[in-house]
Design a binder for these strands. Structure first.
Lengths: 234, 234
DNA sequence: TCAAAAACCCGACAAAAGTCGGGTTGCGAA
DNA sequence: TTCGCAACCCGACTTTTGTCGGGTTTTTGA
């Protein structure tokens, strides 16, 4: 399930940390300290990085791969709260607030992760308050996203949420469908089930707003899609 | 709408700040600095404290009264994200991340609020990193609540969400219905509309699980209510 | 104190979301 | 290559949620 070899390739981490926004402006020796006390883990696809309820005392830095953060119910349904891609940091909640994690993290593909222990992190924060402000900013972003998610789940239809997701796609008018970005994952992200998503796609296709082939979805009528995305939202 | 008299009753704030968890352990002179640069505002019931989209550069400390944080759609529906009662701090997002606020804050009753300007706050954080950790912990709590809210909205029925809310009530088995905690507000908090909430209450009453009179709701069968609250949740 | 406004109630209906059964397709591993 | 499994498709159905029109009760403020 989980390939965990704690090697000490700190040079590599050191280089990555230097490129990492959180840590911009820190002394190299502080970075070295962080690098030396961190451990390295590799997770296979579908492996659980941490469980809801776990009290995890490390900050996670995803070096390569991608993850999803989910909360799931007994009957199999799951709500994806966010996706995490390479270069992002997560588990601030667990590491700094000492609270059990509110959700489960699962690897979507093989993922390499650095674990920075709490002690080291706290020491660095106390010595470099600037870093605390960075972390706070990062958490604020998450709060903004969660607020938006909650409001959308409550106030918008599946069609509107899906349209919005399409429009938010950075590549103009096209969403790539990678192996792990299938209708099942997508529907969990939108807070619904695959059948309903399938139905919505069918309807938008029939209406001529989008076009789907095997590996991507293209936007054909952006204006109309915007209209539908705003349904029941301001 | 908004009764805004900037008086300098700093002594009062000083006393309150001393009692306030965020600031525990700070030097009295730092507290004084905070108190002196803060301003005081009073908001009438239903007054807007800040709007979604505003870039607010102060931290808010609610001294008395209560607020709700909402996100609303064009067609009048609104999702209440959280309630804020006396003694709580809010708008960390706006003040520290310099991001437009993701939601609107509205006074439920007359509310007195201290505004602590960003500059002062940042100075205090940089000088006392311990405080940054406090703020981070506070934000982590909010993230946990929002994660739970999003998952509940997506995975649970209105009945389950309402049951859970009842069970979460601190006073054993009783929820007080204040003026501003009516079915309209309650339903906005649960992510539904008054009619549906009314129906749920009717059904739970008919099933003998709860009992409602003019000013409070009592739990009659806690075990069965727990069962219903868990419906479609783990 | 009384009248208007707001909250609440409720049955009937409409719309959205979820479920089910039974398909087809396409990809990967043996 | 072929078998098997997972993803996807789709129509019919159910459940949940939201809406509407009409009512009653409660609160509030002039």
């Amino acid at each position: 399930m989980l390939n965990c070899n704690a090697m000490s390739d700190t040079n590599l981490l050191l280089k990555r940390l230097q490129a990492f926004e959180f840590l911009r402006g820190l002394d190299p020796d502080v970075l070295l300290q962080l690098a030396e006390s961190s451990t390295w883990k590799v997770f296979a696809p579908d492996a659980v990085v941490f469980w809801e309820g776990d009290v995890e005392s490390s900050l996670f830095y995803l070096q390569y791969g991608s993850l999803k953060i989910v909360k799931s119910s007994q009957d199999g349904r799951a709500q994806v709260l966010r996706f995490i891609s390479a270069g992002e940091v997560f588990n601030e909640v667990g590491v700094l607030a000492k609270k059990p994690n509110p959700a489960t993290a699962i690897a979507l593909e093989e993922s390499g992760i650095w674990l920075i222990p709490r002690q080291t992190l706290e020491a660095v924060i106390l010595a470099h308050p600037q870093m605390a402000l960075q972390i706070i900013e990062n958490m604020a972003d998450k709060i903004i996203n969660l607020v938006t998610l909650a409001a959308d789940l409550s106030l918008k239809t599946v069609e509107a949420r899906f349209s919005k997701l399409l429009l938010d796609q950075p590549e103009g008018g096209v969403i790539e469908r990678r192996r792990w970005m299938n209708q099942t994952e997508l529907s969990a992200h939108l807070g619904t089930v695959p059948d309903v998503l399938s139905r919505v796609i069918r309807e938008l296709t029939k209406a001529g707003l989008i076009e789907m082939d095997k590996h991507q979805i293209r936007i054909l009528d952006r204006d109309e899609l915007i209209k539908r995305a705003m349904l029941q939202d301001k």
